[in-house]
Nucleic acid binder design. Sequence first.
DNA 1: AAACAGGCCTAAA
DNA 2: TTTAGGCCTGTT
Length: 281
Amino acid sequence: MKYIQHKCEVEITGVSDFDLERIFECGQCFRWEADESGTYTGVAFGLAASVRKKSGSIFISGTVSDFENIWRSYFDLDLNYAEIRKRVSIDDFMAQATKHGAGIRILRQDKWEALCSFIVSQCNNIPRIKKIIATLCSEFGDEISFNGRLYYTFPTAEKIAALSENDLAPLRCGYRAAYILGASRAIVSGQLDLKTLAASSPIDARKGLKELHGVGDKVADCAMLFGLHMLDSFPLDVWMKRAVAEHYGKGFDPSIFSPYAGIAQQYIFHYVRNVRGGAKL
DNA sequence: AAACAGGCCTAAA
DNA sequence: TTTAGGCCTGTT
């Protein structure tokens, strides 16, 4: 990988497995939007940015120091996904899934943002999840001016913890509001330390997350995979349950993909939803 | 109009 | 340990 500073963006070359649509539309994040040219704009770690690809190069707005401090890690550019694709292609089904999903990456998102987002995601569809999170940010995040538009940071746990359920009413997120408040307060009180969990074993991380009211197996696994970057975590939603039951039978054990079960999960998810399954169950 | 959406919790077998 | 209902809200 090499990168050079241009006028107001950094050009990155020598990175394989980088497909913006597959990265941003595979359900791991909810705050990046594409324009008609395929450039994605979003906010992460308090910084707004635009990302585009052109003839094999990646262009990310900002400086080399932004890239080194944030985006290099955010896009997980130091992990060799091409090799992981080979590794999880254990049968024909996975060979197909990885072929169609080449370019997917697991973002290294903010831990709290991921946890909060997947609490909101429960029993919801993606458009509504996006809307709720957008409102959460515009109501309680900090403004960022970027390319003549206003964007918002994701509100900190501290900020949310100081609110009431009534304050969250504009989100229209129903019973999830109490879950968000509970999670934020657990973090602020120190009862839950995401940084510690990220450094602990998957079993302990899962147990810790599930102590939160409103966090079960699925949300915990998503928070681990997408927030704690525990790449062996294998979230099982209704789509995945159906897919693995169909292809591997009832006694399926995700550890056949270890230590990259979570990445395998993303390939399978993308494959059954976007390539084979279509948009309906 | 009733069912369902990328779950979770609780109560009851 | 597994299963059914209810939960906020928006959409079909």
